[in-house]
């Protein structure tokens, strides 16, 4: 949401702005669905916000990358929402009911996000040479971070065994990551853009693409709070939360007045 928020007032057309606004509203909703799911387990939202602020709670590493050009809105929708969908479709079959129902709802809304992103990529990739260059640059910067969204290698995944045993997670990180790569490479080919991995090639025996090893140092660096925008994202969240404290206070005072009024 914060990466897209950067482009809301810079969207190139009213249509683009409307679409981006609708996407951001959906993502705020997705956050709320998941907070509600966690609340069913007995924690309050205020406690979770506090954990986020004092960095006890982690959030997806992808939000710590900057969005430098309008093409990044395309790459984010196409790759970031695309990777999220692969994960979320699998999680629709998670064993915890409220989580599963939340994921079903999320999946219904996500595919519009990915399509609007790809539409921007098409406009840029088939536009002027400068636009195409911006599209390629966005792909270069978001490819590996999108792959990292699936989490560490199965061998290094701390929560993997318990989550799989309890059927919270249904498919492994590496499995889902490979599915995303296999779906996305032909979409890049259509755009005439090059995936930034010289070792990417189709293995005809499996129908899957092989790729270079990932830069896991970069991944752990971002997860542990040292990505390009970690501090900025967190500061922004805290500022919005504290600047709007008066709204919560006013709402509480109003609610109390309404409840105790005799009229």
């Amino acid at each position: 949401m914060q990466p897209e928020g950067n482009w809301l007032l810079r969207a190139p057309s009213l249509r683009a702005k409307q679409v981006l606004l609708a996407k951001i509203q959906d993502e705020a909703g997705h956050g709320l669905y998941l907070y509600s799911v966690a609340e069913t387990l007995g924690i309050s939202r205020a406690e979770m916000v506090e954990q986020l602020h004092n960095q006890e709670a982690k959030y997806s590493s992808i939000f710590n990358y900057p969005t430098l050009t309008w093409a990044d809105m395309g790459a984010v929708g196409w790759l970031v929402d695309g990777a999220a969908i692969v994960n979320q479709v699998s999680l629709q079959r998670t064993s915890y009911g409220p989580y599963s129902r939340g994921m079903v709802r999320i999946c219904k809304e996500e595919s519009f996000h990915q399509r609007q992103g790809y539409e921007i990529m098409v406009q840029m990739a088939f536009g002027t040479p400068e636009q195409k260059e911006m599209a390629q640059d966005a792909l270069n910067r978001f490819w590996e971070p999108a792959l990292m969204m699936f989490g560490p290698h199965d061998a290094d995944s701390v929560h993997k065994n318990q989550s799989m045993d309890w059927k919270i997670k249904r498919e492994s990180n590496d499995h889902l990551r490979q599915r995303f790569i296999d779906r996305t490479v032909p979409q890049a080919e259509y755009l005439g853009l090059t995936i930034p991995d010289v070792n990417l090639k189709l293995d005809p025996s499996t129908g899957s693409y092989t790729h270079s090893p990932f830069n896991w140092d970069e991944f752990w660096n971002v997860v542990n709070g040292n990505g390009p925008c970690n501090q900025e994202r967190l500061d922004h969240h805290k500022k919005a939360h504290y600047d709007n404290a008066w709204v919560r206070e006013a709402a509480a005072a109003y609610a109390e007045k309404v409840e105790t009024s005799v009229a």
């Binding site: 709320l32 509600s36 939202r45 205020a46 709802r105 919560r248 709402a251 109003y254 309404v258 409840e259």
Partner: peptide, 28 residues
């Protein structure tokens, strides 16, 4: 203080039962 959790039920069409869809927050 003051914020409450509410359970949300949606009726898709007139005549159908209300179905629980999740929860939300609200002060009133």
């Amino acid at each position: 203080s003051g914020v409450k959790v509410w359970e949300v039920f949606v009726q898709k069409k007139s005549g159908l039962p209300f179905k629980h869809v999740g929860s939300c927050h609200g002060y009133d």
